[in-house]
């Protein structure tokens, strides 16, 4: 299961994870993986089981069944080895209020087995990277703003240069400036560490992550790269065409490019007719479609493709029954 130089195939592996509280099933048969150096978004509606999964991976909660491993080390069988390779920032990022930022990070570095001679240098480096050095190093954590507290949490996570970083809602409660800062910090980790981010903010995940894992009601419903999921979950591509001609003419021209095209009238304004055109996934792209319509003699003013972003992927994935999800 290892690649070159002892590097495992998966930095994080969840295999059939199940967690039950009596008759309540929090997560069931959840399997996914994160490759080394990859940034993965972990998505799901409230109560889907995201935090439960993160806690199991971090070793602060035991799974009822299944196997969680970090860098090839079982979290349940060898927690110390797994914890040495991993850093976890829990939701709400609990921090001791009465310690100063620097002394807290020094304590955490010592507890995370950073070599005694490197503790000061590592603390200085993460404080610099997280923009804490000048503005917060000597301040009590209890006096910090939410944004700086999150930075302290991320600095703590990076202290021991772990192979895996688990971040549970890292940007919750932050203002847009702070979100941008945290996003840049996470982006800078790409290729160096495997990062699993649980988040509600789809835009943020889309901006930062290479891959997404979507769960609903404790079960996996989709995982993969957003482009692959778009292809998987989007039955057809939709375009809006604004032209002088009506929907029938647009459809006739479109069918010369894609015989399975369908169209419907979507309104008219100042003699310009709006047509909603649906083509099967894999049909010509917007440029080719616009060129094709124009060369068929249509007077096209505007052609646009309807967005199918992560939000739509998320909605489509969480609408379908748990268990239909595929591994990629």
């Amino acid at each position: 299961m290892t690649h070159e130089a002892g590097q495992p195939e998966s930095a994080v592996a969840a295999e059939g994870l199940t967690k039950r509280y009596g008759s309540l099933v929090a997560i069931e048969e959840l399997s996914f993986s994160v490759a080394p150096g990859e940034i993965v978004g972990f998505l799901g509606p409230n109560g889907a089981g995201k935090s439960t999964t993160m806690r199991i991976l971090a070793g602060t909660m035991a799974a009822t069944s299944g196997r969680a491993s970090i860098w090839g080390q079982s979290v349940a069988l060898d927690p110390a080895a797994a914890k040495r390779r991993m850093a976890y920032m829990p939701e709400n990022n609990p921090l001791p209020e009465d310690l100063r930022v620097e002394e807290y990070l020094v304590l955490r570095a010592k507890l995370k087995d950073v070599e005694p001679g490197r503790v000061k240098a590592r603390v200085a480096k993460v404080m610099e990277d997280c923009d804490l050095a000048r503005r917060a190093s000597g301040r009590l954590i209890g006096q910090l703003s939410k944004g700086f507290r999150q930075r302290v949490g991320i600095a703590d996570a990076l202290l021991s240069e772990p192979k895996v970083v688990l971040l549970d809602e890292p940007t919750i409660g932050l203002d847009p400036h702070q979100i941008l800062g945290i996003r840049d910090l996470i982006r800078a980790l790409r290729g160096k560490m495997a990062v699993l981010i649980s988040s509600h903010i789809l835009h943020e995940v889309e901006q930062v992550c290479d891959k997404v894992v979507i769960i609903n009601r404790g079960r996996l419903v989709a995982q993969g790269r957003p482009a692959d999921l778009r292809r998987e979950l989007r039955p057809s591509a939709s375009f809006t065409i604004v032209a002088r001609e009506d929907a029938a003419a647009v459809l006739a021209a479109a069918r010369s490019l894609e015989p399975a095209a369908t169209a419907e009238e979507a309104g008219e304004e100042d003699g310009w007719r709006r047509t909603r055109l649906s083509l099967p996934t894999g049909s010509p792209a917007l440029d080719a479609l616009a060129t094709g319509l124009a060369s068929a003699g249509l007077r096209v003013r505007e052609a646009s493709e309807e967005k199918f972003g992560l939000e739509e992927i998320f909605l489509a994935a969480t609408r379908r029954s748990p268990g239909e999800g595929r591994r990629s």
């Binding site: 971090a58 070793g59 602060t60 110390a80 914890k83 040495r84 991993m86 850093a87 976890y88 829990p90 709400n92 609990p94 921090l95 001791p96 209020e97 955490r108 507890l111 995370k112 087995d113």
Partner: peptide
Amino acid sequence: RSGTLAALLTTPAS
């Protein structure tokens, strides 16, 4: 109560 114990137990300290 504050959650810092859980954070402490995510370190390799037993």
